[in-house]
Computed example of a mutant assay.
Amino acid sequence: MTMDIVLEDERWAALDLAALAQQAEAGVCAAFGLSPEGFEIALLACDDARIAALNGDFRDKPQPTNVLSWPSDARGAALDGERPTPPEPGVPEMPRELGDIAIAFETCLREAESAGKPVASHVTHLLVHGLLHLLGYDHVRDKDATLMEALETDILGKMGIADPYR
């Protein structure tokens, strides 16, 4: 995927967010047999204050959260627990826009430390989570949540990252 990363908070550079994002992208693309060259996303690496403002603007919840995503198209499945139809890729010269993701440094760090997980593993999980949202997966309905969690666990397991839900 072409990934435009905007580092609003320089603390992300120390984690090598670009490498973690590439790893998440490769895992998601492999899971769905998608060609990475056919898609593009934008990733905003910010702090809690910025994500709280975004969360307030877009979800009416003006508090920090770990990750937000904005798919470019509605891709969700009609029935609870069904897989969304994968998007058609563009071409390398004109990739299909999947959407945008924002991730907050302090919240990610706090959650990883609280759970006793490596920060890089937690961030990779949240990036996989955000990418799945861009592909139409969600966790509002029960069966959709079960499907999304299973996909995350499988994708992360293939990267050598432990099940984030255990």
Rank of each mutant, 00 (worst) to 15 (best):
A24K: 02
Y137F: 15
A19V: 12
G160T: 03
F105Y: 15
L126W: 01
A26S: 11
S35T: 15
R141C: 06
A104I: 04
W12V: 04
A77V: 14
Y165D: 00
R59L: 15
Q63N: 14
R11F: 04
K117T: 13
R141F: 07
D142R: 14
P164Q: 01
L131I: 04
T124E: 02
A31E: 07
D16C: 12
S35A: 13
G56R: 06
P92F: 06
L34K: 01
E149G: 03
A14P: 02
H139Q: 13
D100R: 11
A30N: 07
A53D: 10
H139P: 06
R83E: 10
R83F: 11
H125G: 00
L109I: 14
T85E: 14
T65K: 10
P62Q: 10
D9T: 11
A30M: 05
T153G: 07
V91N: 07
W12A: 02
A104R: 00
D9F: 09
P118V: 09
I101L: 02
M94G: 12
A150N: 14
A31P: 07
P62N: 13
F105D: 03
A77Y: 09
T153C: 08
I5C: 07
L134V: 01
N55V: 07
A115R: 15
P62R: 12
L79M: 13
L79D: 10
G81L: 11
L131E: 00
A21R: 00
R59Y: 14
T85C: 12
K143L: 13
D80Y: 08
L20K: 03
L54F: 05
A31N: 06
A162T: 05
F58H: 12
E149F: 04
L134N: 00
S114N: 11
E152I: 06
S35C: 13
I103Q: 00
V6A: 14
L127E: 01
I155T: 04
E149S: 06
A52I: 05
P89F: 04
D142H: 12
Q22W: 06
E97L: 14
G157A: 11
H139I: 09
E82P: 09
G27H: 00
M3H: 05
W12I: 07
Y165N: 02
A112K: 00
R166I: 11
Q63F: 14
R11E: 06
C29M: 04
M3F: 08
A42N: 03
E88F: 11
T85W: 09
A145K: 02
T124Y: 00
A74I: 10
L151K: 05
K158I: 12
K143W: 08
R141S: 08
